[in-house]
Design a protein around this nucleic acid. Sequence first.
DNA 1: CAGTGCCCTTTGTCATGACATTATCAGGGG
DNA 2: CCCCTGATAATGTCATGACAAAGGGCACTG
Lengths: 253, 253
Amino acid sequence: MKQAESTLPGGLFMDLDRSGPVPLYFQIASRIENAILEGDLPPGSRLENEIALGERLGLSRPTVRRAIQELVDKGMLVRRRGIGTQVVHGQVSRKVELTSLYDDLASGDRHPSTSLLLHEVIEADARIAEVLGVPVGDPILHIRRVRGADDVPVAVLENYLPRDLVDLSEEDLAEHGLYQLLRARGTMIRVARQRIGARRASAEETTLLEIDKGGPVLTMERTAFDNSGRAIEFGSHCYRPDLYSFEVTLVDK
Amino acid sequence: MKQAESTLPGGLFMDLDRSGPVPLYFQIASRIENAILEGDLPPGSRLENEIALGERLGLSRPTVRRAIQELVDKGMLVRRRGIGTQVVHGQVSRKVELTSLYDDLASGDRHPSTSLLLHEVIEADARIAEVLGVPVGDPILHIRRVRGADDVPVAVLENYLPRDLVDLSEEDLAEHGLYQLLRARGTMIRVARQRIGARRASAEETTLLEIDKGGPVLTMERTAFDNSGRAIEFGSHCYRPDLYSFEVTLVDK
DNA sequence: CAGTGCCCTTTGTCATGACATTATCAGGGG
DNA sequence: CCCCTGATAATGTCATGACAAAGGGCACTG
């Protein structure tokens, strides 16, 4: 099979910003990623080897290697020892990362809307205490929202937040995405565990989502943890399956 | 908050196998992972800093760092600069990685079964040619199976395989999992892109899965790529939502 | 007493160097 | 003509060293 030998476009080798806060490996990774998305690096083409790439960029091999690793983890490149590094076939759609539905919609063309159905502080029962890792009886903020895109309902979002966050106001929640608010408070989400399933819509969900009675909904339960490893949020969501789905990219390690 | 200072159990520091084929960073990562799963490293506890850990193990910092990174990527550890590395709260359920439904079931207590409904070689139409990255008209193996666990139907699996794999026999497919067969042929799957959604079951699926008419099914479409970046398989699957769901762990980078 | 600035700890980034492992390919021998 | 073997090329692993950046605590000051 003929492999495109990929004389890399000159744009990849523009000046690097060595003083700014952006890591060098990240700058390189971004440029390679753009080259792939723009079609300058077609699927199947081979990258230069790590040593040569480093010399041309004036970088050490570990730095170049780390840049490549970023894209391997994203599923855009594949490495083979003794062979080289190649671009994966199949066009990549921007993958969903650690973003909320609000972010997903906002980054697209559609503009999101929110209506707050419920906003109450309750005491943690056994189940909530378990998933959030707090004592039973601890104060918990319980909210329930309907998220829409272009005024069409997309999802019913039910969330439970631990005591540090019970003071989130109704106005903020009606106006902004939950993750947006958390970021603004300086609490960064680092890890999230999700379970994705499906079931029949309840009567209430049928009404809220404007779907047929007994129709299917896509469900997602998520526990999110901050940078100190403590649980920050438990969410039980259901989505209109004709308007939303999840994308996942898996990489063998 | 009181942090367990985590005098690490002695088992972590047993002799390393420096001659064998298992990388040192992998050996360390495995031991830390076991310590977490066994409860020796409780949630919230801090690890020793990377330098000290390296000295006690007789390893350099990059090696220790890489071991820790493996577990960070798995969502089991969280790092904070200036602070240290801590164990994430919440018990981890064994993650689902790049495995097939067959592997998932077999690794549990249940024993999987397969019935082959369809096994034909067709010519690639525009859609299949697109997702597999082959010319229109190329020979494609089209199979359709029902996967059961303990004799209860769990999923309807429809797969399309490119020309290299059209010679998979009916006997093999009825007997083994698809990914099992691919591994046996030496083709390793490195990257997979999945889309997870939901919809109403078709009439045929209703019968095959023994569910109520018009009931919901969980759907997954997947394109898998081998270590040279070529598409190896396209699958369009639907699952009984009361018997199966997807787990995903996301890590912010 | 409270606010502020300095210092220490720890992870984040980057460079250099070395050897191991694996796949391809060309050449020689059966 | 085929198989085996060695050379070559590329990634995989590991060590050592250095500096930067961020977070927390402590002491000093207003």
